[in-house]
Amino acid sequence: MIHQYKFGEYNIVIDVCSGALHIVDDPTYDIISMFEASNRDTVISKTAEKYKDISLDEIEECYAQVAGLKESGKLFTEDTFEPMAGTLKAKTSGVVKALCLHIAHTCNLNCSYCFASQGKYHGERALMSFDVGKRALDFLIENSGTRRNLEVDFFGGEPLMNFDVVKKLVEYARSIEKEKNKNFRFTLTTNGVLVDKDVIDFANREMSNVVLSLDGRKEVHDRYRVDYSGNGSWNKIVPKFQEFVKARGGKNYYMRGTFTHANPDFLEDIKTMLDLGFTELSMEPVVAAEGDPAALTEADKPIVLKQYEELARLMLKRDKEGRPFTFYHYMIDLKGGPCIYKRISGCGSGTEYMAVTPWGDLYPCHQFVGDEKFKLGDIWKGVDNTAVQNEFASCNVYAREDCRDCWAKLYCSGGCAANAYHSTGSVRGIYKYGCDLFRKRMECAIAVAVARELGDAE
């Protein structure tokens, strides 16, 4: 399977199953598009007819090079990965390596678009106790097998509303990680309201990454991100975030924005963040039910897709100006990315990755918390709902019929189970709107990577 597209001056051909990327000239691009459906003479005559200023010898040379790529297994490569789809999960069955610790099911903001219903996850307000958190870390170590890298995200709600417990849990983990031969990587997601010098010093010492919620333009951010009196939070948090990022040396953070039906032109929000001095950016489509006023519509889609293209051009332009920035979804390492076993096995939710509620219940990931039928078990007795866990374990790129003919399947690994469930009622479904956005993001990400690889940042 191949995918070919044009981006700026580049004609890009992705050979999906070999992973080879080809950057080709115009006649070769056309030859590839006809190669499998027509015979050699037809392809060459049609190409010669279109490119009258190119000699027949040269067109035959193009054809020969395409044929050579196919022969060497770098073009039109067959998909032979399906039998391997369960290998990594089978090999690591029962191993847990990452937890999303719901340290606080409460929040000091009242954002109406929050997928976690203002941090309460459709339940009662709650803070995780140190004892529950400590047991969660012990559960992670006990179930991590030979994995050395263990990841714990402090999440909510607003985790800084339970900051003392966060600090004690990190201290506990650091006290045992050497003895257990583990390496804890902590991350913190915060709305910024409670960020102060103490938080900054602690996070810079202990957090391998911090995720800072900012939606961009003041009027966009303050539309949804308000306190319980209805006041916008932009003025309060932006100076705190600027201080936070400066203290981190401008590294190991993401400004994490959400775009909605109110701002499908989210590139303007990215530009605002750049103007504020932030350079590590992640801007994500809202998770909202169809019909929700914040939900993206079909009419928004072409606007959003255009933003992704313009964003790629902006990145290359700023590269050339010596002012680079990072966009999370365009951060693709062409040569050091995940191996094929990871690419076909899915994200690991419900198997190697779980969410822990303030009272110690286990869920497949943070987006399923509060939906009782997805409860996997708890941190004392482990997973006892094996039916749900097996359903997640079998989620891979080949478990979804709609993914079979998609060129992007080895980049998304079948996509997000939560998005699939919320849009189709099945964790093996397909969130088609999200797929359209994902494919565009991958086209742009690969184009940016190709431009950088070839040293042609325009």
Binding site: A20, L21, H22, I23, V24, D25, P27, T28, E61, C62, Q65, V66, L69, K74, M84, T87, L88, K91, T92, V95, K97, A98, R147, R148, N149, E151, F155, R185, N209, V211, Y254, R256, S282, E284, Y328, H329, M331, I332, D333, L334, K335, G336, G337, P338, C339, I340, Y341, K342, R343, S345, C347, G348, E352, Y353, H366, Y411, S413, M442, E453, L454
Partner: peptide, 27 residues
């Protein structure tokens, strides 16, 4: 040259921002 080309069960050490292609191999 009309073409420029550029990308042995897994170990699972790679990292599990937004809440797979963007990951790096950590073996």
């Amino acid at each position: 040259k009309h073409v420029k080309t550029i990308t042995k069960g897994g170990c699972g050490e790679c990292q599990t921002a937004c809440k797979i292609a963007n990951q790096a191999c950590e073996n």
